[in-house]
Design a protein around this nucleic acid. Structure first.
Lengths: 211, 211, 211, 211
DNA sequence: GATGAATGAGTGTTCATTCAT
DNA sequence: CATGAATGAACACTCATTCAT
C-alpha cells in the first residue's frame, strides 16, 4: 500500500498527532518552564515515546514555535473581529464586544501564554518574531479604526499610536498579572468586560458619564 | 592577621563584589536569558574566575534572587513615594508625580526586569515570591489611598482592588511592550507621564475634562 | 495461493530484491561510510520502505556482510583464474593476465571495497572473517604455484609465503591509494597491467631484462 | 594567582593532558573503531572524567584529528630522512635505510594507524586531507630523488610518478595486511628491510643480481 | 580570598528495529 | 509481502559546582 503524503486523511492524522504533542508541550512548559521541561516529560504527558516527537517536530525549540503559532492564530482572530466591526457607530458597544473577545481568548490560551511568554521575553529571536508577526499587525489593523473614531468625535483627539499602546498594555498587563496568580483578577474575570471597557473609556475620574 | 567578618570595611568590600557580580549577571541574563547564560559568561563579564562567584552566591538561581532583590528595592521606593504623598489633595498632581517616578524606575531597571521577569513568569516559586513580596504589598499600600480618594469624591466609586489591578496592569503592560522592543513606546517615553496620567484619569472618551 | 519457498521463480525474485538492496547499500556506504549511512538512506536509494530491508536482511551489519560476500565472490574468481593457469610455462605471461584480471576486479568493485574495507579494518570480527575467508585461501592457492615457479627456475629462490605477501601488498596498496583519490594512479589505470607486471618481476633496478 | 595562558609550564601541562587523552583514544579507537568507541570508554581508559576530554578537544572527531596529526608527525620524519639521504650514491643502501625507517615508523604507530585509517578511508573529508597533507607531500619529496637515480643510471627509466605509487603501495599494502592480522608478515617483520629492499629493486625474477 | 581544572549528572537527539495495517 | 509510524536504547555534549593550589 503506497500512501500519498498529500493524502488528506494522512494530513489529518499528522495534524492530530501534532496537536496532541503541542497540547502536552503546552501543559508541561506552562508548568515547569521551557528549560526545565524535558522531552521525556512531554512524551510521557502525550502518552508517546520520546522519538515520536521528533517525527513531528524538528527539535525542542520547534515545539515552542508550534505553540506560539497556535496562540498567534487565536490572537489574529482578535484583529479579524476588530476589522469585522469596523464602521460600527456605537464605539462603546464595539469596545465591549472586543474586550469580551480578547479576555476570552486570553482565558482560553492562558496555558499557552504561560508556556510561551517567558521565552518570548527571554529570547531575542522569538521576541522580534512575536513583535513583527502578532503585535504590530494588530496595531496596523487598529490604528485606522481608532483614527476614524477620533474623526467621528467619539474619542478625544490623541496620538493614535500611543493610545493603542496604552490599551494594549492594559491587556498585556492583565495577562501578566493573571499569570502571576493574582487572585482578585481571576475571581473578577466575569465582570471584567464591563469594568475594563469603562476604565478604558472613562478612566478613573469622577465625571458625568457621557451616557 | 585575622579579619573580623563584621568589619564594616570588609562588609563594604563584600557588597562591592556582590554588586559587581550582579551587574554582570544582569547584563548577561538580560542578553541571553537565565538558562542560556553560563556562569563562565558572567564571570568573564565581571572579570573574575568562575569559582569566585560561588564565594558570594550559593548557586546560579541565587544570582537571580540577588537581581530580583535589587529590582524590588527600586520598586519599593514607589510604594514609599505613594505613602509619602498620602494626604495630598490634588489627586491628578499626585498621579503625575507617581507615574513619572514609576516610569523612571522602569527605565532604570529595564535590564534588571529583562533579566528577571521571564523567569518570574516561568518559575512557580519565583512567581509566588514576587507576588507576595512585591506586588501585593504595593497593592496594600495603594488600596487605602485609593479608597480615600473615592471618599473624597476625587475618583468615581469603583471596586478599589480591581481598579488598582487595572492601573497596575497598564504599567506592567508598558514594561512588557518595551521589553518586546516596541519602538513607539520607547520614543515616546519622555511624554508618557503626561499621556499616561491623562489616560488613567480620563480614559479615551471625549468629554469636558474636569480641569 | 500458497507459494512454495523453494520455488525457483520465488528464489530469483528474492535474489533480485537482495541485489537491489545491496546495490543501494554499496552506494550509500561508499559515499557516507557504514555508520553515517542510515537505513532510511539505503531504503530511499533502493526505492523501497525501511521495513522491507529487514525482510531480506537480518540487520544493518548483515548488509555489510552481503556486500562483502559479493566482493569476495569476485575475488575468488581471481584464485580460480590462477588455478586455471597453473602449469602455464610462460610465467611473465601468466602474471600479465593475472594482474590485468585483478586490476579489473578492483576497478569493478571499487565502490564495494570503499563500502566494506573501512569496516573490515575497523572491526575485529569482519577483519578475521575477511582474512580467513578471502585472503588466506588465495594465498593457499598461490603458494604451490609460486613454489613450482621457483622449482622451475623461473623465479629466484625466496620465502614463498613472504613473496606472496609482498605481491599482495602491492595490490592492496594500489587499492588503498585509489580509494584515497590519488589521481596519478587513476589516470594510469590502463597502463598498469604492463607496468605492474614489470615492477613485480624486475623491480626498479636497471638490468638486462630477461626477455 | 593569575595564570598566564601562555605560561610554558601551563602549556606543558596542557600538552601532557592532551597526549594522555590521545593515547587513550588511540587505544580505544584501534580496539573498537571510531564509532563503537564511546567518550566514556576513552575517559575511563585515560582515568579521567568524560567532561575533561571536552576541555582539551572540541568534540569526538577532533580526537581523531589529534591522533592523525601525531601519526602525520611520525610520517613526516620519513620524508625528512629521505631528504637527508639525498645525494647518497649507493642507492640500494639508501633504500635499505629508508625501508627500515619506514617499517619501524609503521610498527611504532600501528595502533595509531588502526585508529585512524578506517575513518580516513570512510570519510571523504579526512581522505582528502590525508592525501593533500601527508601522501602528496611525501611524493613531492621523493620524485626528484627518484629522477636523480634514473639520471644516474642506478634505476631503469620509468615513469617516476607511477614508480613512486607502486613503491608506496607496497608499503601501504603491508600496513593493511598487518592491520588485518596476517601472522606471516608480523613474524617476518625483522627480516623485512632486507627482503623488501630486494623485492623493490630486483623484483621476483631470477637474474644475475647487479651486486 | 581567588583561581580554573576537573567532575559527572542530566538531556536533546538519532536511528536501527519492530509490527499493526 | 510491503509499508512507515512508533519505539526507546544509546550517546555526545554541556555546564553548575567543587576543591586543591
Amino acid at each position: 500500500m503506497v500512501t500519498d503524503k498529500r493524502d488528506p486523511i494522512h494530513a489529518q492524522l499528522v495534524d492530530a498527532r501534532r496537536n496532541q504533542i503541542l497540547d502536552a508541550a503546552t501543559e508541561v512548559f506552562a508548568e515547569k518552564g521551557f528549560h526545565h521541561a524535558t522531552i521525556k516529560d512531554i512524551a510521557r504527558h502525550a502518552g508517546i515515546a520520546d522519538g515520536t516527537i521528533y517525527i513531528y517536530f524538528k527539535n525542542k525549540p520547534d515545539l515552542l514555535l508550534g505553540i506560539l503559532n497556535r496562540v498567534n492564530e487565536s490572537e489574529r482572530r482578535g484583529s479579524d473581529l476588530a476589522k469585522s466591526l469596523e464602521g460600527e457607530i456605537d464605539v462603546r458597544q464595539f469596545m465591549k464586544v472586543y474586550v469580551r473577545h480578547r479576555l476570552s481568548v486570553m482565558d482560553d490560551n492562558l496555558r499557552g501564554f504561560q508556556a510561551v511568554l517567558p521565552d518570548i521575553l527571554a529570547n531575542t529571536e522569538l521576541r522580534e518574531r512575536f513583535l513583527r508577526e502578532v503585535i504590530e499587525p494588530s496595531f496596523q489593523v487598529a490604528e485606522p479604526i481608532f483614527e476614524q473614531w477620533v474623526a467621528a468625535g467619539a474619542v478625544r483627539p490623541m496620538n493614535a499610536a500611543l493610545a493603542l499602546r496604552l490599551v494594549s498594555s492594559t491587556f498585556f498587563g492583565m495577562l501578566v498579572l493573571r499569570m502571576m496568580g493574582d487572585a482578585t483578577l481571576e475571581n473578577a474575570w466575569a465582570d471584567l468586560p464591563e469594568v475594563v471597557t469603562n476604565f478604558l473609556f472613562d478612566g478613573l475620574e469622577k465625571k458625568e458619564p457621557s451616557r
